[in-house]
Design a protein around this nucleic acid. Structure first.
Lengths: 239, 239
DNA sequence: AGATCTATGACAGTTGCGTGACAAATCCGC
DNA sequence: GCGGATTTGTCACGCAACTGTCATAGATCT
């Protein structure tokens, strides 16, 4: 599993204990996009073992797990460790919520949950927990990666092969918009609307900025590898 | 107003800021049934006044309030106080949730909420908050380092290459705000809000103070290495 | 070949930012 | 209280960077 060995220094590590492979994978990928070092476990037992050997900064845990269930899992986590625990469950009964929090969980969210909400809750939790813990890791800055191209929407910077690329505000917004919908075509109209806020206008404007952006982020701007044109449709950013 | 004077000693006090009389009353009664000392306020302004004069242990706040809204209310609470804040709102957009947590809320629940869940969340929050307070006194002050630049938020001092740098209070707060979100761009608006508490105002003010700060902390203020400008976006502090 | 669609270079108008000057407000020792 | 020193916020100016438009050349489809 990604990042299992080689936990990056300076990154915040999150352990996801969830038996459904699809959901676990989706969570792991989303967390990594947000700049976390995410590790998965399919059962409570495995999760506890991983956490003991290689403690994460946060644990996300499902309630319905084969074998040891979520509640037991939380109690075990609480026994060894003071790691913040967030329950991510499909059930939204008050009874479950209360039981999980009583068992020692710090928060409880109901699936499906937006990744942005989840990370906002992790940050809120960190703010609370940090008062106590001395050298807690700094908040990770999310980075979207496209091959050697790295875009950090929050950091306001773009790097190519690790080197910072100076882009203007408009270019940056355009790039972020494309990056957030990576792999999908966005029409000039859509881009005008989302980047410029124009409801109508000259679509050539988009071309010009795409062109300037290519000069900066593509190694060979004439034959773009990431920021590609789809004739008659628009542009897309791809890996 | 219930329990306004005569806050019971030994009881946990909760302040409920909610403009709907029916909901506020219901919450107050339910909380009192659960053994809390509950106090109500119908507006953010009133709530802030009450909290300043007679601080509760927790604050519950609605988002949609007349006058000063919930988000602003949270920021004001956070500025003078470290009281745990739980948002109780009818809205369940991810966007609102994230914004409220970013503003400084500790938790967010959607109305209607079971009183049992609410109190369970308050208890979970208390457990977390207390963990912090336990080691409060002997806790070594965390020092944030940016290359040769060192900032100790609690100690109120800044050093460059070991040498103390005299910064004014405003400069210090600005620097801390940037340091706490190291690597992220903060817009002038955000800085005005977080450092000065202004909800609106002349953004050039930020420029001026950033400029003065740079004169002190950068070895070559004309080409800053740490406190950098992102044209059109804002400022950020980086390593 | 003709008709579209797209890339790109040049240019002028605009915007954003850094800076120094200055007055009001605040702090501080006495 | 009081007077000087420090800090704070406002303003205006000028430079550098950015933006949007246009014209032209190139590419791609039918």
């Amino acid at each position: 599993m990604a990042g299992d060995l080689g936990m990056m220094p300076g990154m915040t590590a999150v352990l996801v204990i969830e038996d459904d492979d699809r959901i676990r994978l989706a969570l792991l990928l989303a967390l990594e996009d947000e700049g976390y070092d995410a590790v998965g476990a399919a059962t409570a037992e495995e999760g506890l073992r991983v956490q003991r050997r290689n403690p994460a900064d946060y644990v996300l845990v499902d309630l319905m797990l084969p074998g040891l269930d979520g509640f037991e899992c939380i109690r075990h986590l609480r026994r060894d460790d003071d790691v913040p625990v967030v329950v991510v469950s499909a059930r939204d009964d008050t009874h479950d919520i209360v039981a999980a929090l009583e068992a020692g969980a710090d928060d409880y969210v109901v699936k499906p949950v937006a990744i942005k909400e989840l990370t906002a809750r992790l940050r809120a939790l960190r703010r609370r927990a940090r008062a106590g813990v001395a050298g807690s890791a700094p908040e990770p800055v999310p980075v979207l990666a496209f091959g050697e191209l790295e875009i950090s929407p929050d950091g306001g910077e773009v790097r190519r092969a690790g080197q910072p690329v100076p882009v203007t505000r408009t270019e940056f917004r355009l790039l972020c918009e494309l990056a957030e919908h990576a792999g999908r075509v966005l029409s000039r109209q859509q881009l005008l609307q989302r980047v410029w806020g124009y409801d109508s206008g000259d679509e050539r404007l988009v071309d010009v900025h795409v062109g300037r952006l290519r000069q900066k982020i593509e190694s060979d701007p004439a034959t773009p590898r990431h920021l590609v044109t789809l004739r008659g449709l628009g542009y897309k950013l791809q890996r």
